[in-house]
């Protein structure tokens, strides 16, 4: 193994929409597939990806996203977000991209670490019991930097 190879990454997931969460999960899983060490850090609305009651209910944002190519007024109609989410999940399934809960379990099983941001947990009055069993710990920003030592940090 040459020294210019990436050995370790810390990926921060800060958004709670479907399209905000998946890129980080795919990058984390992909890194483990290449033998790279991975820590995943969930902060702010990104925490929804590891909250048991919410993780499989993430939605695509159909408003305020010009790349959806639908007018904002239409995107805001009831059911639009649910429809876009359903369509995207269907396409992802074709590519063997799992639903969030299954993906989180898979990533955990690859040996990656999954952590929740303490500041957000306190702000939203969350408890350890609110999180899925694969979330390893609630940690501070300081812990996160300590853990990320010697690796690259990716913010999503």
């Amino acid at each position: 193994m040459s020294s210019d190879r990436i050995e370790k990454v810390s990926i921060v997931i800060s958004k709670g929409s479907l399209e905000g969460v998946y890129p980080g999960l795919i990058m984390a899983n992909g890194a483990r597939m290449e033998g790279i060490d991975v820590n995943l850090f969930f902060t702010f609305f990104g925490l929804d990806a590891v909250i048991t009651k919410r993780m499989d209910k993430l939605k695509v944002a159909t408003v305020g996203n010009p790349a959806m190519h639908i007018p904002t007024m239409i995107g805001g109609l009831p059911g639009m977000s649910a429809m876009a989410t359903k369509m995207m999940m269907k396409e992802m399934d074709k590519l063997d991209i799992p639903p969030v809960s299954e993906f989180i379990e898979m990533i955990h099983d690859t040996g990656a670490g999954l952590y929740a941001c303490k500041a957000t947990v306190d702000m939203f009055h969350l408890k350890k019991e609110d999180f899925c069993e694969h979330m390893d710990d609630i940690i501070t920003v300081g812990d996160f930097y300590e853990m990320s030592h010697g690796g690259q940090i990716i913010f999503t």
């Binding site: 033998g35 063997d96 299954e102």
Partner: peptide, 21 residues
Amino acid sequence: RRMKNEGGISTKELYNLFPKG
């Protein structure tokens, strides 16, 4: 994922058997 769901090979086991990729 296919190896897990169709082949019955858990992801943990797979990573143990073939470490680093």
